[in-house]
């Protein structure tokens, strides 16, 4: 694996190797000195062309726990505002000594283009509504830790699936790991022509609620046009919100998840978000370990290329 760009092409063995590695790094993060020298001397660049707090911090925390140095790039302080092309930005960072790049961009496919232009391994930190593979890995890790496996679990992904890179990434990772996934949304928030996707589809949350082991809630992506294709937020909450009443109708072992940032009172009721069977903060914790695993795995290749 040279880059991590999408979960669509990952095999079960590749995913499980990364999750096993993440389990080991979880132990590292629990130590008194939560740091290993695995990537000492390497520089991880975080190129976040789209605003993000949690994902960037999570990657930077992961890089530092592996003793890598971090170069941070954000568009507001960069020459992007001066009209520099993405390619020139990337080549400039590489010339400064960046060894690994984490790229987030609002445009689909941007990390693929970066991977064409640079010699560095590239991690997709989220591209448009397309893919966000480390989110899928951390979600899979969270579920695996809670249930011991994904095989046979039934997972509902609920909400603005059309505009969600998390839904696309999670679907392919979780189905590869043996889970059955049902996408739940009104028609205008579901992608079109998804007959060949490995999932079921439902237009009514209440129809499928009882059979779920995991209910994964998504935010309405107003910035990608998600808020203009259904009548109103109250109506959305009425049909698709994880209210307390719906939570009480879940099986007693079922859990809820959310990639954050949450809109409390919209897709998830505050008391559900804070319930012991909400894994939201477990997801955040798993994120650091998973990103350590990914950076370590891709960083090893850089290590073997560079003579010591």
């Amino acid at each position: 694996m040279r880059h991590l760009l999408t979960t669509e092409s990952l095999t079960r063995a590749e995913i499980e190797e990364l999750l096993d590695l993440a389990d080991e790094f979880t132990d590292v993060l629990g130590r008194e000195i939560p740091k290993v020298p695995a990537l000492r001397g390497l520089t991880v660049g975080t190129l976040f062309f789209e605003p993000s707090t949690r994902t960037r911090l999570s990657f930077e925390r992961a890089a530092k726990a592996l003793s890598a140095d971090v170069m941070s790039f954000s568009p507001s302080t960069s020459s992007l505002s001066k009209g520099e092309s993405l390619k020139d930005t990337v080549l400039t960072l590489q010339a400064m000594g960046c060894d690994l790049m984490v790229v987030r961009h609002k445009a689909t496919g941007a990390p693929w283009r970066v991977a064409e232009w640079t010699d560095c391994p590239v991690v997709n930190g989220g591209d448009g509504a397309h893919q966000h593979p480390t989110q899928a890995l951390l979600d899979s890790l969270t579920v695996r830790r809670h249930f011991g496996k994904l095989d046979g679990l039934h997972i509902a992904i609920v909400g603005d699936i059309r505009h969600s890179r998390v839904a696309r990434s999670d679907l392919f990772a979780m189905s590869t790991l043996g889970a059955r996934v049902t996408m739940v949304a009104p028609p205008t928030l579901l992608p079109l022509d998804i007959d060949d996707w490995p999932c079921d589809v439902s237009f009514e949350l209440d129809d499928v609620l009882g059979g779920m082991d995991v209910v994964y809630l998504l935010r309405i992506q107003a910035e990608r046009g998600g808020a203009t294709v259904f009548p109103s937020l109250p109506e959305y909450v009425q049909r698709f919100g994880m209210t307390r009443a719906r939570f009480d109708r879940l099986s007693p072992e079922a859990v809820v998840m959310h990639p954050g940032p949450m809109n409390r009172g919209v897709e998830i009721a505050p008391e559900v978000a804070d319930h012991p069977r909400s894994l939201v903060l477990d997801q955040v914790r798993a994120g650091v370990a998973v990103r350590m695993a990914v950076l370590f795995r891709l960083g090893q290749a850089v290590r073997t290329e560079v003579p010591s």
């Binding site: 689909t108 397309h130 890179r165 079109l192 022509d193």
Partner: peptide, 18 residues
Amino acid sequence: ARGGHMHEGAVSSRLGMR
């Protein structure tokens, strides 16, 4: 058209592209 970048269909859905 809504500012779309490619044909609307199975491929655009997979790519999550407008």
